[in-house]
Lab assay of single mutants.
Amino acid sequence: MPEGSASLQLAVGDRVVYPNQGVCRVSAIDVKEVAGQKLTFVTMRREEDGAVVMVPEGKVLAIGVRKVASAE
Rank of each mutant, 00 (worst) to 15 (best):
M1R: 13
M1A: 12
P2T: 11
P2N: 12
P2F: 09
E3Q: 11
E3D: 12
E3R: 05
G4S: 13
S5G: 13
S5W: 09
S5P: 12
S5M: 13
S5H: 12
A6E: 11
A6S: 12
A6W: 08
A6L: 11
S7F: 11
S7E: 10
S7N: 11
S7K: 13
L8W: 09
L8C: 01
L8D: 08
L8E: 07
L8H: 10
Q9A: 10
Q9Y: 09
Q9R: 13
Q9G: 10
Q9P: 10
Q9S: 10
L10G: 01
L10N: 01
L10W: 04
A11F: 08
V12I: 10
V12W: 01
V12P: 04
V12D: 01
G13M: 01
D14A: 03
D14E: 03
D14I: 03
R15D: 02
R15W: 15
V16A: 02
V16P: 00
V16R: 00
V17A: 06
V17M: 13
V17L: 14
V17C: 00
V17F: 15
V17G: 02
Y18G: 06
Y18A: 05
Y18L: 14
Y18C: 09
Y18V: 15
Y18I: 14
P19A: 09
P19I: 04
P19V: 04
P19Y: 07
P19S: 07
N20D: 10
N20R: 08
N20S: 11
N20E: 10
N20L: 08
Q21N: 11
Q21Y: 15
Q21S: 08
G22Y: 03
G22A: 04
V23M: 09
C24E: 00
C24A: 03
C24D: 00
R25V: 15
R25F: 11
V26M: 00
V26W: 00
V26K: 00
V26Q: 01
S27E: 15
S27P: 00
A28L: 05
A28E: 06
I29L: 06
I29W: 01
D30R: 08
D30T: 14
D30K: 07
V31K: 05
V31E: 07
V31P: 02
K32G: 04
K32Y: 15
K32I: 15
K32F: 15
E33W: 13
E33I: 14
E33N: 08
E33A: 05
V34H: 06
V34Y: 07
V34C: 01
A35P: 02
G36K: 02
G36W: 02
G36I: 01
G36S: 03
Q37V: 13
K38Q: 08
K38R: 09
K38L: 13
L39G: 05
L39A: 06
L39C: 01
L39Y: 09
T40R: 14
F41A: 00
F41Y: 10
V42H: 00
V42S: 00
V42I: 15
T43Y: 10
T43L: 06
T43G: 01
M44F: 15
M44Q: 00
R45Y: 14
R45S: 08
R46C: 15
R46I: 03
R46A: 05
E47N: 02
E47V: 06
E48D: 09
E48W: 14
E48R: 12
E48Y: 12
D49I: 02
D49H: 02
D49A: 02
G50Y: 03
G50S: 04
G50V: 03
G50N: 07
A51E: 09
A51H: 09
A51M: 12
A51Y: 11
A51R: 11
V53M: 14
V53F: 15
M54K: 06
M54G: 03
M54V: 15
V55W: 05
V55N: 03
V55P: 01
P56M: 09
P56H: 07
P56I: 13
P56G: 05
E57P: 07
E57I: 15
G58Q: 11
G58A: 14
G58I: 10
K59N: 13
K59I: 14
K59M: 15
K59G: 09
K59P: 07
V60A: 14
V60L: 15
V60N: 04
V60S: 05
L61Y: 08
L61M: 10
L61F: 06
L61H: 14
A62L: 10
A62S: 09
A62G: 10
I63Y: 06
I63H: 11
G64L: 11
G64W: 06
G64H: 08
G64N: 07
G64Y: 07
G64E: 08
G64R: 05
G64M: 11
V65K: 04
V65M: 09
V65G: 05
V65H: 05
V65F: 04
R66L: 13
R66N: 08
R66D: 07
K67A: 07
K67S: 06
K67P: 07
K67Q: 08
V68E: 07
V68Y: 06
A69Q: 11
S70V: 11
S70C: 08
S70L: 11
S70H: 11
A71I: 12
A71R: 10
A71M: 12
A71E: 12
A71Y: 09
E72A: 10
E72F: 08
E72V: 10
